[in-house]
């Protein structure tokens, strides 16, 4: 099976600081569901950032979707991002856009006609049980609802890879369960590769999926 992510001795460092990640060597195959855990400040989010090109490696080689992140021009990087879905702990929804338009965002960027974008957004909002709130604005929703919108947005354009940074960090049990179910479903039915960065793996999933851990800037394979 081809690798979706291939990291070879990747080193990540903020300017004028010690490296956060000293050595990350791992591969993620198509259709895998992978958890990366680690203590606060261990560099989990930084590693995730590097995968969507917000932080190019200081050293080593990081290839995502067949493209080497450190060597991408900004236009090629933007093209790559159009095939990746990202979920943040703080949701990052566009406040002045309706819920429906937020979900439509990746499809608008991909250039789909408006009616196609709207139909797809409605379908996903039904999946996340928020179709009745499609005209609302993000601030009118609870945190759990906002994160479900963010998950719907990440899935809207059928990305080959979903990167999730603490997707249930601020959520109640019900919303967390909905989010995990959606990610599992995308992984099982669409074979979308999913990489989740989290403090701890939920018990309902802990036994099933691959687990990597960052400790002292080095990435270890746990399971």
């Amino acid at each position: 099976m081809p690798s979706v992510i291939e990291s070879n001795r990747t080193k990540l460092a903020y300017p004028r600081h010690e490296p956060v990640i000293k050595n990350a060597t791992f591969k993620v195959q198509t259709g895998e569901f992978v958890f990366i855990t680690g203590a606060s400040g261990s560099g989990k989010s930084t590693l995730l950032k590097s995968m969507y090109g917000a932080m190019p490696p200081a050293d080593g080689e990081l290839v995502v979707g067949g493209m080497e992140i450190g060597k991408l021009s900004s236009s090629r990087l933007y093209k790559l991002r159009r095939h990746i879905g990202v979920i943040f702990q703080d949701y990052k929804l566009i406040g002045e856009w309706s819920v429906e338009k937020n979900v439509m965002l990746p499809l608008i960027i991909a250039g789909f006609p408006k009616d196609v974008c709207r139909a797809q957004a409605q379908k996903l909002l039904t999946h996340v049980k928020l179709s009745h709130k499609s005209d609302k604005f993000p601030l009118e929703l609870s945190g759990g609802e906002q994160q479900r919108v963010a998950v719907a947005r990440a899935l809207a354009h059928n990305p080959f890879l979903i990167l999730a940074d603490e997707p249930t960090g601020n959520l109640d049990d019900y919303s967390s369960q909905v989010v995990w179910e959606l990610l599992e479903k995308a992984n099982e039915e669409l074979k979308t590769t999913i990489l989740v960065v989290t403090h701890h793996i939920p018990e309902m999933l802990s036994a099933e999926y691959r687990h990597l851990m960052i400790e002292n800037g080095v990435l270890y394979e746990i399971r």
Partner: peptide, 16 residues
Amino acid sequence: RERMQIMALFGAPVWL
């Protein structure tokens, strides 16, 4: 800025 940042994250070209 926030909207532009989020759009950039999803690969929106400059003009969009």
